[in-house]
């Protein structure tokens, strides 16, 4: 298992390098004078000031040199300064990524806690009312765009019922109750699509496993239904579920862009979109790197869970 882990970890390095190169190339492809772009729209600096910006951001150097300078700084933890926000990129990303992470993890947990049992129930009670309701909800969950769900949730629970805050962010570690209250709606809006997908996946995987001979044998041995499902069927049914689960990390980051805008959460998703619009090079590069790291870590975790669930993987790979 250890060897497997090390091998998987080493595989991440070239992927990360390719990611940094691609991000750098993308930023270069954007038309226009980068020094002017760094000033931001609606602002005017004179040529003398622009020249200082070119020097400060190494825009006067060849592209490969720029990339080299940037990479050498990054490995030392220096991501540069945001041209828009004039703060160190690392500080900016650290606070924002932490916020996104809180909501992401909560949405993840919520999705799994609801989806896996619901999927199991749906499979076990296949063709009955519970199954139809679960199917209806999950189709809705996939079909409804999460920004619309978010706005509707704000309207119903925030404005008309007044049960929950309509928007805003409170640090959960400073004020746990208010923080939690502010998290409920966005976490639901963020997690609902993943929840629906994981539930569909659990249901079909479970149905497949339940039709296997060994399940029939277990039942024939006289095992109780909870043991058959919980012990024998579930572990095998979870394999494809874990795949979906891993893929959802990327989705949750993508969803965060929308949900953070709708709920006014100072996370990384929205910040990255603004940085791209403002051509805030340093932030985009640092941010994409961190997101890539997060997705790679989630994939790694998925692979490790795989190996734990199914020993064949770690030996054959």
């Amino acid at each position: 298992m250890l060897q497997y882990m090390i091998r998987r970890l080493l595989q991440i390095v070239p992927v990360l390098l390719i990611v940094t190169l691609m991000v750098f190339a993308l930023m270069l492809a954007i038309p226009g004078d980068p020094a002017r772009a760094l000033v931001g729209p609606g602002e005017a600096l004179d040529e003398e000031q622009l020249e200082i910006i070119r020097k400060e951001f190494n825009l006067d150097k060849p592209v490969l040199v720029q990339y080299g300078i940037w990479l050498s700084k990054v490995v030392r933890g220096d991501f540069g300064r945001s041209s828009q926000y004039q703060r160190p990129v690392l500080d900016e990303l650290r606070t924002r990524a932490w916020v996104t992470l809180q909501f992401g993890i909560a949405a993840w947990v919520l999705a799994v806690v609801i989806a896996v049992p619901a999927g199991i129930i749906s499979a076990v009670y296949r063709g009955r009312a519970l199954d139809y309701i679960a199917t209806l909800i999950s189709i809705g969950g996939v079909a409804i765009p999460n920004f619309w769900f978010g706005i509707m949730a704000i309207l119903v629970f925030g404005v008309y019922l007044g049960w929950l805050p309509a928007q805003g962010y409170v640090n959960i570690f400073e004020d746990p109750i208010e923080g939690l209250r502010h998290m409920i709606l966005p976490v639901f809006a963020l997690g609902i699509t993943s929840c629906a997908l994981i539930m569909r996946q659990t249901r079909s995987a479970m149905l497949e496993v339940l039709a296997q001979d060994y399940v029939r044998t277990a039942r024939a041995k006289g095992m109780s239904e909870p043991v058959v499902i919980g012990v024998h069927a579930l572990r095998n049914a979870l394999l494809p579920v874990v795949t979906v689960f891993g893929l959802q990390t990327g989705r949750i980051f993508a969803g965060a862009v929308v949900i953070e805008t709708v709920f006014g959460i100072p996370g990384m998703g929205n910040f990255m979109v603004l940085a791209i619009f403002a051509r805030d090079f340093m932030v985009v590069q640092g941010g994409v790197l961190i997101m890539a790291l997060a997705v790679l870590s989630a994939n790694l975790l998925t692979d490790l869970i795989y190996a734990w669930l199914d020993p064949r993987i770690r030996y054959n790979d």
């Binding site: 706005i151 925030g158 404005v159 928007q167 805008t261 006014g264 100072p266």
Partner: peptide, 11 residues
């Protein structure tokens, strides 16, 4: 900071 107009009105 409330970036979405609809949410601004709701708030």
């Amino acid at each position: 900071v409330i970036k979405d107009e609809t949410v601004l009105s709701s708030a």
